[in-house]
Amino acid sequence: MKLYFHAMRLHLKSLLEYKASFVFGLFSQVFVFFSYYFIILALFNKFDNIKGFTLYEVLLTFAIIQFGFSVNEIFARGIDQFDDLIVDGSFDRLLIRPQPIILQVLCTQIAWIRISRTVQAIIVLVIALVNLDIAWSIEKVLVLILMLLSSIAIFFGIFLLMASYCFVTVKGLEVRNVFTDGGKHMAQYPIGIFRKGFIFIFTYIIPYAFVNYYPILYFLGKSDNKFYMLSPIIVLLYLIIPFYAFKRGVKKYASTGS
């Protein structure tokens, strides 16, 4: 853990060497991010609800998913771009060091520049929470924390799963986009608005619905089901699969060459 904090500091320092471009980068991230919620704002200008969900309810689901994704974009970028490590053979270097592999991969890249997205996600979250009329209780605070945690967990899990796949294919797959960007795009809205087949896939195969759909039904008082409240925990259990896959991948790993 100490090692990781050290890496965090190093990456931040190297960024701050170029202050102007760092500030500019932060700023441009704001705009890129803005185009995401532009659609939501524009559509709620013409429609008043989507399958019973209001603007702020959608912004809440949106903020939760963006929060988890952006946190991963900062800290798990090394895993997201794992194929680079395999392709150029630098993964071999990590293997000979006496430190946990995943930790080392995480240390290779920390993209502080994306922190502006996390901040924005938090701002949108706060705006949504302020405008929603929520009867706060300990359970609701708990469910909110669980949602944010599981949002981080799900993207981390997918990144890790795709990284494990690189052991087999070497080069990353375009399918990855469907799971990360595609899933993210869907989970920005309450997943219940989609067609049944999609809901099934994104509930049981990739558990986006447990991150911010079922919990939010409970959170918004649309359902009293206690199971919904605890459903983000399922996502945390799902993490076992990618970790196992990655471990197996490392065991089977044969270097790409010199």
Partner: peptide
């Protein structure tokens, strides 16, 4: 394939909006 998937997701969002009254 990717483009198709995204197209479908976008459209489902709009369909849901239009179906909401």
């Amino acid at each position: 394939a990717t483009q198709f998937f995204f197209g479908f997701v976008f459209i489902m969002v709009y369909v849901a909006f239009y179906e909401s009254g």
